[in-house]
Design a protein around this nucleic acid. Structure first.
Lengths: 222, 222
DNA sequence: TCAACTGGATTGTCAGACATTCTTGACAAT
DNA sequence: ATTGTCAAGAATGTCTGACAATCCAGTTGA
């Protein structure tokens, strides 16, 4: 069977590539929160000019992945617990909504992909060798829900929070037992979506976020 | 009485100023949706260099105020009705939440400001000389609610939608009778916040957004 | 009529330069 | 010992100018 071919040619511009590389670097913790990013150094290690780099930095700034203080340059922002709490509050609203919508609109094919990503997460939980694996599979699971919620604004908003959410996930997933509980909650979301029960899907998603927040709180404040 | 002094020194950088000017220009309709923005022209009229301008364009792109197609440059995006609908859906969720939170947390001083901005809107409705006045006063009213909702993410998200929301407002406010209905709805939101009733505030805000969507729909599809 | 081509317009990208501002360490004053 | 002042060095803010890559429209030729 031939997979859907992606005909989009994406010739990436230099700033776009820089954004992706830096985003990945920040997310994987190469640059510690609070640390400053020196333009000249970045230019050298990335092999791009300062104007291109600075365009990329502006994009990352808009994504809240970095802060740019005038005359001090860019730095990776620190995440306070209150910041994290606010993120969970918004997630509870929007991911609940997304799951509910998804339950009614998702197509067979994407439902299958959702099931597979849940299975991938399960495998990551039982093998539990890599914290990173837990985060990416969780992230994939919710990304599929977002793609199928039928509202681009919700999708964009939560995608914009992904960086920080994954950062929080990497902390809470390391708590003993959290990954497994997380799996049970996600299974409930999947089940509700599968039977097309919007109300139940919203509730399950909101509960998951609430539990995730509690876990993150203990991981954060230790 | 001495007003609260703002001690923040805000020395603005060139790109920041460009962002503000272009944002204002786009919002006030100087650049029509779909029209292209030519970098050289913008540089000349703004009196800045291309690198500075391009940094500003990246910020505006992240705000979804412009689209940048590689090798074609920036342009003001067209807003489809589906796009608008999605915005109203998110507003219903987030502005409802914001109003509810605001009802419990707002301080005396800001409540007063909220009342004043409602009064300013009323005056704009009765004089009804300027559509622009209706939009800015409405926008101010909700901006105060957002500032006091206690969640920066919600505030940022809805602020990011402000451009397009105001565009839609300018259309629907021109419908006969809409401005007045809008005032009644906003008065209900204010009343609920004033008595600190979160549930009622959420409901009023959601109802307002729903009505605004209906109005926008008829204005949009005519 | 339609395909191919060509020239101008526009964007993508870089290098280099200089003014401005911040940081830091040293040194003087209280 | 703490505070204040100052200078050097580092980093950012911003511009100019240049050239390659790409797109678009009008022209040419079949």
């Amino acid at each position: 069977m031939i997979a859907k071919m992606d005909l989009r040619i994406n010739r990436k511009t230099v700033p776009q590539e820089v954004v992706e590389k830096l985003r990945h670097a920040i997310l994987s913790g190469i640059y510690m929160p609070g640390s400053r990013l020196v333009e000249t150094d970045l230019c050298n290690s990335l092999g791009v000019s300062r104007p291109s780099l600075r365009e990329a930095l502006r994009s990352l700034q808009a994504e809240r992945l970095i802060e740019i203080v005038p005359n001090r340059g860019p730095q990776v922002p620190l995440l306070s617990w209150r910041d994290a709490e606010e993120i969970y509050e918004v997630r509870e609203l929007l991911e609940g909504e997304a799951a509910a919508r998804c339950a009614v609109t998702i197509q067979e094919e994407d439902l299958k992909a959702l099931g597979e990503s849940l299975e991938a997460f399960r495998r990551a939980v039982v093998s539990s060798n890599s914290a990173n694996e837990l985060v990416t599979t969780t992230s994939d699971f919710f990304a599929i829900i977002l793609r199928n919620c039928g509202n681009k604004i919700i999708e964009e908003t939560l995608t914009g929070l992904k960086a920080r959410v994954n950062f929080l996930r990497s902390r809470s997933m390391s708590l003993p037992g959290r990954a497994n509980k997380s799996f049970i909650e996600m299974k409930a979301i999947y089940a509700a979506i599968k039977i097309g029960n919007a109300k139940q899907a919203r509730k399950a998603a909101q509960e998951h976020v609430a539990k995730a927040r509690d876990a993150a709180k203990s991981a954060f404040l230790r």
